[in-house]
Design a protein around this nucleic acid. Structure first.
Lengths: 363, 363
DNA sequence: CTGTTAGCGCCTTCAC
DNA sequence: GTGAAGGCGCTAACAG
């Protein structure tokens, strides 16, 4: 009586998307107004339960699902946030997954607060383009979301300002000085200091080599600076050398080749790397050369990538809470979407030393 | 004369999203109709170039960006596709990143055809829920996209049918038998056969141990089956044992413990694993136990994860073209969105042997 | 409790 | 070349 087409699931002809039915179809079929249907769809009370029941049946029978574009339009809210990564256009094109490995963890974090409210993530990677293109791209994304998370790459402050004028933006691991966006970033200092202290005080090392990330990256610069400063605080400990890498595994390999090419006497006690990828590359090269880790030379990284723990020996590193970064950034973004007048926020998350075996500690 | 508010970038008060301006604002400010603005926004010709110029200036000054919800509504196209992963709810909660590592590569592939047309990806991970929840979730996503890619996890065929009635669906690495969706999947056979042949013919191995993935996973089953069948084709070669793992690194470790607990005489020549994660776990445990790879026991995996190449020794494995899977799936989906009447499609991509050193080949 | 009625912002014929 | 006007599907007052 309420409907007469039989189960909609049955009438699928091929694979094509068949005609989606609308609120009106449901209303007509159930003999009520669209407002009522809308009410039951959203679980509002003021509806007689028999009416609700009837509407629900029709919805089920027709397989009705509200169109999100229409909802966004009427509600002025899309329930989608954008997560964007801007892939570096450094000298090397050797990005070597560097990017997404990071984004992936962040994404996991972002999902948490989002799934609680039932929103979704629109993810996009912007590859090496000029700034004008990049801006157009970001603009286009901004039209599809209620807020954006920029998780990698640098956007000029002026562009950020214009973007932020349209939708709230929060930077993940961005520069804390940015005035046009909220930002959540890792405290590279705490972990790096702890690592250096550990190497020196626990293992009595006196000659540390550093493999740095690219100088364009603020994180790389900060890690390196803190490393050197901390080292300088110790008597009798010195920087055995430094290699400027690009955060890719190959950089670690190259650094090791350079080290092994030098006289044996000058070899460092340990090689500390600006991220885990380079540490992995270093360990691999050391292994190939027959140098034992950590017996002959210790190695340490930064990030605490999932696979570091599976290496032989397991990698000692500094943990950067990437997932938490994503989670906090998303929570902050959601807050601001709810109330755009909130004051500017910057949140700093601690990094911590993760001692495993590549530094010389027992397994 | 055309506008009088100054550069919009200047009038950003705080961080909040300020009032977004509409097509009407632009039309009014430029002294033309909305139709004309729409024409210039979309680069249609029939517009006098002086008019176009004026409109463009106003757009720039006002920072106008068309609202995508309104566009979707009018055009009945969202320019977004959904990529969903359904995280396994196996006995172990030990998902151990298993999921996203895969999704990530697929995502990279998906991005290619998508960025060409300027569309975006809505990504969502559905965690262990019952089927009714899962279906509601998928339905909700379906309302936000023009088509969906299901890249992990199994959806009952009946649900798929109902989903497909709303939007086109293509399965990435799904079961090729599914009638309600297009599917792109890897040919687990070719690579597995090549691997077994290599181990036996090149290395003269006669005792192979297999670490399988969970039997619920079609891929795991197929790999195992092909492995055993191929083995059976050789005289004097036998299955030295089998361990049923769950595609996680710990499974590989457990398998090795079991192997090492047995009498030394019974040790296999090689341990072939159903995926790289388990192979990595196995290598790690072997290393811990002082068993040399590949000298004492060789190891091989499946997938060709990025990090396999960085291990010591580098992992011999079967390459599954995950990125290509994503790319093809997305291309097929786009085709079907463009023309829903297309015939059902199934695409099978070859897997290939990647010989590195863990099988005993020279570096 | 339930129905009526404006829009939301844009696209797209159809006239001029 | 350009403007006017009718929807797209849904929500949210405002009336009953």
């Amino acid at each position: 009586m309420f409907f007469n087409r039989g189960d909609t699931a049955e009438r699928v002809p091929g694979l094509g998307s068949s005609s989606a039915c609308t609120l009106y179809d449901v209303a007509r079929e159930a003999g009520v107004s669209t407002a009522t249907v809308s009410r039951v769809v959203h679980g509002h009370d003021r509806v007689r339960s028999s009416t609700r029941q009837r509407v629900l049946e029709v919805i089920e029978a027709l397989g009705y699902v509200p169109d999100s574009a229409a909802q966004s339009m009427a509600r002025k809210r899309k329930e989608v946030i954008g997560l964007v990564a801007i892939e570096g256009r450094g000298p090397d094109t050797d990005i070597e997954q560097e990017g997404l490995l990071f984004i992936e963890e962040v994404l996991r974090g972002v999902e948490a607060p989002l799934s609680q409210v039932g929103w979704s993530v629109l993810i996009s990677v912007l590859r090496g383009a000029d700034w004008a293109d990049a801006y157009r791209f970001l603009q286009k994304i901004s039209a599809k979301v209620d807020g954006m998370l920029i998780a990698e790459g640098i956007v000029p402050s002026s562009q950020l300002a214009r973007l932020a004028a349209r939708v709230p933006v929060t930077l993940v691991a961005g520069s804390p000085g940015e005035p046009n966006a909220d930002v959540v970033h890792a405290d590279n200092r705490s972990g790096t200091e702890a690592l250096v202290r550990h190497m020196i005080e626990q293992h009595g090392m006196t000659r540390l080599f550093y493999v740095a990330g690219p100088p364009e990256a603020p994180d790389a610069r900060e890690r390196r600076r803190v490393f050197e400063e901390t080292l300088a605080g110790y008597q009798g400990v010195r920087l055995a050398g430094c290699f400027e890498g690009r955060f890719a595994a190959i950089s670690g390999q190259l650094a090791v080749r350079e080290i092994l090419a030098a006289p044996r006497r000058e070899r460092p006690d340990a090689i500390v790397c600006g991220n885990d990828q380079m540490a992995i590359g270093a360990m691999r090269e050391l292994h190939t050369a027959g140098v034992r880790v950590p017996a002959d030379i210790a190695v340490a990284g930064f990030d605490d990538m999932y696979l570091g723990a599976l290496l032989a020996p397991p990698l000692t590193t500094v943990r950067q809470p990437m997932r938490l970064l994503g989670e906090r950034a998303c929570a902050i973004l959601l807050d601001r979407i709810a109330d755009p007048t909130l004051p500017h926020r910057v949140e700093r998350l601690a990094t911590t030393l993760v001692v495993r075996e590549s530094c010389g500690c027992p397994g």
